[in-house]
């Protein structure tokens, strides 16, 4: 019994160590993303705690594999966790929803209103391409193109910043 428990505990501790490494590296970025979605710092912190507590060994192995972007993997996990929260917001009447302030980000600020609406709608408010197509009265392919344009702006901002450095 004792012999069986020791490796399990060690596995947990190793997991906790790796978790701490991941936490040190990505918690700020994840908290910034979650806070933008839930618009409540306490709740965002709670989601962050849940995310890292529930992170298990196989998931950590998968996230830290070569060729895998660890942050994107963690962000996708956060997005899954936030899906229920976003769904409850969708059920609210428009005047009951928490008011969202315009997102302050130098990359997003360079986008035009339509690009911001599509990018932030998908990325921060988990809207589907179909929903946005209906809201903007455009085809889904057009929404994808607008999203692509948003990324072109992010890329150009990034390249400009790199050149100035």
């Amino acid at each position: 019994m004792e012999q069986q428990l020791i490796p399990a505990d060690n596995a947990f501790q190793t997991g906790a160590l790796t978790k701490h490494t991941l936490y040190t590296k990505y918690s700020g970025m994840l908290l910034g993303y979650i806070a933008e979605v839930v618009n409540n710092n306490k709740l965002a912190e709670q989601y962050l705690v849940d995310l890292f507590t529930e992170l298990n060994e196989p998931q950590i192995k998968q996230l830290t594999q070569p060729g895998v972007n660890t942050f994107i993997g963690l962000q996708q996990m956060a997005r899954k966790k936030l899906a229920a929260f976003v769904a409850t917001l969708a059920d609210c009447k428009p005047d009951e929803r928490p008011k969202t302030e315009p997102i302050k980000n130098s990359y997003i600020e360079r986008m035009n209103a339509e690009q911001q609406f599509v990018f932030c709608g998908i990325h921060y408010h988990s809207k589907t391409i179909g929903t946005l197509a209906i809201e903007l009265d455009k085809t889904e392919d057009r929404i994808k193109q607008i999203l692509k344009e948003s990324f072109t702006i992010i890329r150009s901002t990034r390249d400009t910043a790199t050149v100035h450095k």
Binding site: S27, G32, E45, N69, F71, Y107, I154
Partner: peptide, 19 residues
């Protein structure tokens, strides 16, 4: 993915000390 990471980096919020 790098673009997404850059956006997140700019919007990063330092977690409270006890997190």
């Amino acid at each position: 993915e790098l673009d997404m990471e850059l956006i997140a980096r700019e919007m990063a919020v330092m977690p409270p000390p006890g997190t």
